Computed example of a mutant assay.
Amino acid sequence: MGILEKISEIEKEIARTQKNKATEYHLGLLKAKLAKYRSQLLEPAKKSEKGEGFDVLKSGDARVALIGFPSVGKSTLLSTLTATQSEAASYEFTTLTCIPGVIEYKGANIQLLDLPGIIEGAAQGKGRGRQVISVARTADLVLMMLDATKQDVQRQLLEKELESVGIRLNKKKPNIYFKVKKGGGLAFNSTCPLTKVDEKLVQMILHEYKIFNAEVLFREDYSADELIDVINANRVYLPCLYVYNKIDQISIEEVDRIARQPNSVVVSCNMKLNLDFLLEILWEYLSLIRVYTKKPGQPPDFDDGLILRKGVTVEHVCHAIHRTLAQQFKYALVWGTSTKYSPQRVGLQHVMHDEDVVQIMKK
């Protein structure tokens, strides 16, 4: 049996098995086997096999992967938001390779990748799905484009495809400490009562991976699936924004219902509706901030701000300006919402906010 057949057999077995106390060990083992085979499927082909890849050089301040079924309006969105022209037509699979574009917004360059349409079975390699998904893993954010006229079906299928290749959308990494040891068997602990797994199940899952000596500490109540994610250690946790296109073809009540769903934005690319709001939300989800610099005795430089991530400190700002600046740092003066008064004298560990102005003083 090939890997695909094995995966298919296990999926059928999981679907057949009733979920109850008696079958939880059996299901846990099946899930571990399934995750193992899927990981093998995703391992890159041998170096000697030359194929056409979608390797696009990462550039700009952030990278956004545009994913969706064929003909939902991805190329139209790319052409509207960026200066790049991606061929758009009313037939499926107009885009066949990855087309990068750059959104210039609030002084930041955000790289937007228009990926070919994903079809069902993409994780198994159908419709160039595997290359599409491997590029999505390198992004900072997934923009899932859906057709507002048939959204629920599309969203579930896409989430399932991404889930099966280890991309977790809008989820946090499980807080489980896991370390393989050389001996001593399994040391299993938890800091809270566990309702979904017990020591026996953890041991069975680890044995499936041929791990017999390990330390496992659950800091929250997690399921077997999340433990398997931690063992595999190749999962990617990405924020995802669901963009519903073609809202001009549905009723206003339906638009209102969709717009109120979490992580969702409604747009119409053809009629250019709500695209400015989409850019605002995109900026928020990417956690980008602008920091302006100021030289002593001169006004701040508002034309050329530094684009950084939320939570950065003055030390990060120093590295962004010049790699040796932090070593010569004496103190900084900061104007903006991160200070109690302006200017405030701060040290390297001061956390910056959006649109703060900083003046670095050297020794």
Score class of each variant (00 low, 15 high):
residue 66 L to W: 08
residue 45 A to F: 08
residue 125 G to Q: 11
residue 21 K to R: 13
residue 284 E to K: 15
residue 236 V to N: 10
residue 258 I to Q: 01
residue 354 D to M: 05
residue 52 E to V: 11
residue 182 K to L: 06
residue 320 A to I: 07
residue 176 I to G: 03
residue 218 F to A: 10
residue 195 T to Q: 14
residue 243 V to G: 09
residue 28 G to Q: 02
residue 46 K to H: 11
residue 84 T to Q: 13
residue 49 E to V: 09
residue 223 S to H: 08
residue 315 E to F: 05
residue 309 R to H: 07
residue 246 K to C: 05
residue 338 S to A: 13
residue 171 K to R: 15
residue 147 D to H: 04
residue 74 K to V: 07
residue 136 A to G: 09
residue 24 E to D: 12
residue 197 V to N: 08
residue 97 T to R: 06
residue 274 N to K: 11
residue 159 E to V: 00
residue 304 D to P: 00
residue 210 K to S: 10
residue 140 D to L: 08
residue 339 T to N: 05
residue 72 V to C: 05
residue 42 L to A: 13
residue 54 F to A: 03
residue 227 L to A: 12
residue 92 E to P: 15
residue 274 N to A: 04
residue 59 S to N: 06
residue 36 K to H: 04
residue 260 R to V: 00
residue 124 Q to C: 00
residue 115 L to M: 13
residue 347 G to M: 09
residue 101 G to A: 01
residue 218 F to L: 13
residue 286 L to E: 05
residue 174 P to T: 03
residue 144 M to K: 02
residue 233 A to D: 15
residue 330 K to P: 00
residue 8 S to H: 13
residue 295 K to P: 00
residue 183 G to N: 14
residue 131 Q to F: 10
residue 147 D to A: 06
residue 155 R to P: 03
residue 182 K to N: 11
residue 324 T to Q: 14
residue 234 N to D: 15
residue 135 V to G: 02
residue 192 C to G: 02
residue 17 T to E: 05
residue 347 G to R: 09
residue 75 S to L: 07
residue 215 E to V: 12
residue 178 F to K: 11
residue 127 G to T: 06
residue 81 L to P: 10
residue 304 D to C: 09
residue 112 L to E: 05
residue 27 L to P: 04
residue 328 Q to P: 00
residue 144 M to V: 14
residue 221 D to K: 13
residue 288 L to W: 01
residue 247 I to G: 01
